[in-house]
Nucleic acid binder design. Structure first.
Length: 831
DNA sequence: GTAGGGTTAG
């Protein structure tokens, strides 16, 4: 269908509106009719089977040393406490508040017209309450409060805040003699606190200081079930309330199980990182002021700090199906998870490791590992629950650590797993975590070594796909590709392989431009020869990618026709690939046709489609050398930024790739941005980014005026940060380029951007994405063109630290450039 | 690990 329509694109194009592109782009010639170029090139060149080379490189992470360290003894000091509380009515202290207070009013009181007598009466009482609040008269407030009766539920937010402030002040003023006042005022303060706010946390803290340990828990219970906040990340108020509740319960040696159960089952908390220092600060604040009537204060604080990791380990655990459903709603894409993609082996802790790794929070991964181990030993995470530590958990932890380049930690986790499991060999699941981790950091050598270390019975068909696909991504391209092909041929000789394995091989051949091999493999699949599986839509999409990347539209058409003849319908990936191919060829008009076709076929454009579209808008002449003069067509910044804002508002949400595509184009085409500035949508028309710590806002105003493209790039970074998107390496390079390539800027702006440069490099060396030689080359080259010895010195120092355990970094171009930079610096100093 | 960013090393 698509192929026929593509041929008709030129005809149809006049009738089709450009749906996503704000204004119709200038039209170029439509695609030419393709000749049948269906013949497949020569026979398969069979790569040599097997790999005779000796294994010379030491295995990474697979831990040859399996000695048992004495880790067990120190872990046994606490007994599982959960059982002792089995009969205890754990919900007693957390019984819900009176129904009248359970929900905030649906309608503010002032909106209800005084139509009848009851309403007039209510308004009168309300006015009395407000008058008492205004006068700060505690006794009168309390009296008015009691008189209000049912009307309490109709208080507006402002009333509640005032009530809470008054209650807080009274409790503060009461000094040591707090019991009576706390008891008398608690009911209205509690009602007033039907809202997450810093004030609520204040109130809970005051109650705790007054020795009341149940109110914080009750507040936590109230809020935790309420609607989650709209922002991503930790619900700080809830975390503080739970921390305070925990402190209170520790002071009475109560079991924490019910409290921990509270923070479980909160799907929106799953990806949140619990900051242990924050829990500590919250608890410490209770003791800051005297008097503190909390019993056993010191022991309570110690116990709470010891228990804080349990909170971390339980946070957001459970309710996995809910979380999944939520993820899929987001943008139609399944959650990006690491080893946990198999629904049969879902495991909460594994999911959290994966999401922490996704946010590149290596410390949080390690802290959660420790916390979870402890929680298991204390019996708070129990066998049979999905919080159990399974092989899946270990696999996810390993993948996360390897993916974050924490090899030593991964090796320790590997060893700990073998000790814990008591088995001589890890399971397939655990091996799989290792493979995925190495595939993630494209370490084909380690990947291969891992594959070799596995026994045949430990290998699964999926792992073959993982390994082959990982080898094709590796850096030692030739060697890895040979290994991957040998692996494929060997496996093939032993029996039919899945279409996924074949697709992985095809993908590898496509990305290394081996189109002849691609053709012959595809032909085998189409013909069903030699046990080759039937090609899937992915197979065709993979082949299409080859021609799309080249902007080879006749071939795209031929392939689409072949696909259709084979009886496979295009999917969203097909459409995106074709769209991308058209854009690369500099043809913007047929793209409207593709989008229209998508609409007709019910394949909704997703974030990939939109990103390709954005790239096309920003490179209207195409991105291929062949498109020659059109390369210099002016980017459609207005349309692109409008589309970006539209995606943020209506979805599909932009990914880090989307943002980087825009930022990169903006940085590269500074002059064009300057000229288009007044036409850009807010906030990009006055591109003042958020200020970094210690940065004066005036500098950024100046930057927005003098280098608006840098301002916009930084605004885009702000948006990525707000969405908690990871910072990919290409984006690091984009921003480094932005910081160091703007010329003719006033001195303060230059200094601010150079400070941002060193800050970004520092961030990369400490938490990633770790710099590559390319990163340093980029920075040093740009920096040496200008006269900034102080910054150059700092960058060289950072590079020195990075290069310390990379002896190979001293070679080659980077080594020479570093030497040159050092010389330049020394000369500066000499003069 | 099918598609989008630029990368890889120089």
């Amino acid at each position: 269908m698509l192929n026929r329509s593509l041929c008709a694109a030129a005809r149809a194009r006049g009738m089709l509106a450009a749906p996503l592109v704000g204004s119709a782009a200038p039209s170029h010639a439509g695609p030419s009719r393709a000749a049948h170029s269906h013949s497949v090139a020569g026979a398969v060149s069979q790569p040599a089977a097997g790999d005779a080379r000796p294994q010379h490189r030491a295995r990474k992470g697979t831990g040859g040393n399996r000695q048992l360290p004495g880790v067990r003894n120190q872990q046994q000091r606490a007994q599982p406490r959960a059982a002792a509380y089995a009969e205890h009515d754990v919900w007693q202290p957390l019984s819900p508040p009176k129904p009248a207070f359970a929900r905030p009013p649906r309608q503010p009181a002032w909106m209800a017209a005084p139509r009848d007598n009851a309403a007039t009466q209510h308004n009168g009482r309300l006015l009395r309450l407000r008058a008492a609040l205004g006068a700060g008269d505690g006794a009168a407030v309390h009296e008015a409060w009691l008189a209000l009766g049912e009307g309490r539920s109709r208080l507006i937010e402002a009333d509640r805040v005032l009530l809470l402030r008054l209650a807080k002040r009274e409790l503060e003023d009461a000094g040591g003699d707090t019991e009576a006042i706390a008891a008398a005022r608690r009911d209205y303060a509690l009602a007033a606190a039907q809202r997450r706010s810093a004030l609520t946390v204040d109130w809970a803290r005051l109650c705790l200081r007054a020795g009341d340990v149940d109110t914080p828990a009750r507040l936590a219970a109230t809020f935790i079930g309420a609607a989650p906040p709209t922002h991503a990340g930790v619900d700080v108020q809830v975390l503080s309330l739970v921390s305070l509740a925990m402190l209170g319960w520790c002071s009475q040696s109560r079991d924490l199980q019910p409290l921990l159960a509270l923070v479980r089952g909160q799907p929106h908390l799953r990806s949140a990182t619990i900051s242990l220092p924050r829990i500590r600060r919250t608890c410490d604040a209770v003791f800051k002021e005297q008097p503190c009537l909390l019993p056993n204060a010191e022991q309570a604080r110690e116990a709470a700090m010891e228990a804080a990791p349990l909170l971390d380990a339980s946070w957001g655990i459970d309710s996995l199906p809910a979380r999944q459903a939520e993820d899929e709603e987001d943008d139609g894409e399944p959650a990006r998870s690491l080893a946990t993609s198999d629904p049969d082996t879902q495991n909460s802790l594994a999911t959290r490791f994966a999401s922490l790794a996704g946010m590149r929070q290596a410390d949080a991964v390690l802290a959660l590992d420790a916390a979870a181990q402890r929680a298991i030993e204390l019996g708070y995470l129990r066998s049979g629950a999905d919080a159990e530590w399974t092989d899946q958990t270990t696999a996810s932890l390993l993948e996360a650590l390897l993916g974050l380049d924490k090899r030593a930690e991964a090796a320790a986790a590997w060893k700990a797993h073998l000790v814990r499991s008591g088995k001589p060999r890890p399971s397939s699941t655990v091996w799989s975590g290792l493979l995925h981790g190495y595939a993630r950091v494209v370490d084909s050598t380690a990947l291969w070594d891992t594959w070799k270390s596995m026994r045949p019975e430990e290998r699964t068909p999926k792992m073959l796909t993982t390994t082959i696909s990982g080898l094709f991504h590796g850096r030692e391209v030739e060697e890895a590709r040979e290994r991957a092909m040998a692996l494929f041929q060997e496996a093939r000789s032993q029996g039919p392989l899945s279409v996924e394995v074949w697709n992985a091989v095809l993908y590898g051949q496509v990305t290394s431009d081996r189109i002849a091999v691609v053709e012959s493999l595809l032909q085998e699949m189409v013909a069903g020869h030699n046990g080759a599986p039937r090609p899937s839509v992915s197979t065709f999409n993979t082949v299409l990618r080859y021609f799309a990347r080249r902007g080879d539209i006749p071939e795209l058409q031929a392939r689409l026709r072949a696909m259709s003849e084979f009886g496979i319908e295009p999917d969203v990936v097909t459409y995106t690939t074709v769209l991308d191919g058209l854009m690369r060829a500099g043809r913007s008009s047929p793209t409207a046709t593709v989008l229209q076709l998508m609409r007709e076929s019910g394949e909704a454009p997703n974030v990939y489609t939109h990103t390709a579209l954005l790239k096309g808008l920003l490179n209207p002449g195409g991105t291929l050398e062949a498109s020659g003069a059109r390369m210099h067509a002016v980017p459609h910044f207005r349309e692109a930024l409008e589309l970006l804002l539209k995606m943020e508002a209506e979805g599909p949400l932009p990914s880090e790739v989307t943002y980087n595509a825009v930022a990169h184009a903006v940085v590269r085409h500074g002059t064009d941005v300057h000229e288009a500035l007044s036409t850009l949508p807010e906030p990009f028309s006055s591109p003042v980014p958020l200020s970094a710590p210690g940065e004066e806002p005036g500098v950024l105003d100046c930057l927005a005026r003098e280098a608006p493209n840098v301002g916009i790039a930084l605004q885009i970074w702000d948006r990525m940060r707000a969405r908690k998107l990871p910072l990919p390496r290409p984006a690091v390079h984009t921003f480094l380029m932005a910081f160091l390539s703007a010329s003719h800027l006033p001195e303060p702006a230059v200094r601010a951007l150079e400070r941002r440069t060193t800050q970004l490099l520092e961030r990369c060396t400490s938490e990633g994405p770790s710099p590559r030689p390319r990163t340093w080359l980029l920075v040093l080259q740009l920096l040496m063109e200008r006269n900034s010895p102080a910054t150059l010195k700092r960058v060289l120092a950072l590079h020195g630290k990075w290069a310390a355990d990379r002896p190979e970094a001293a070679d080659g171009m980077l080594g020479r450039l570093v030497h040159q930079a050092r010389t330049q610096l020394a000369q500066d100093r000499g003069e």
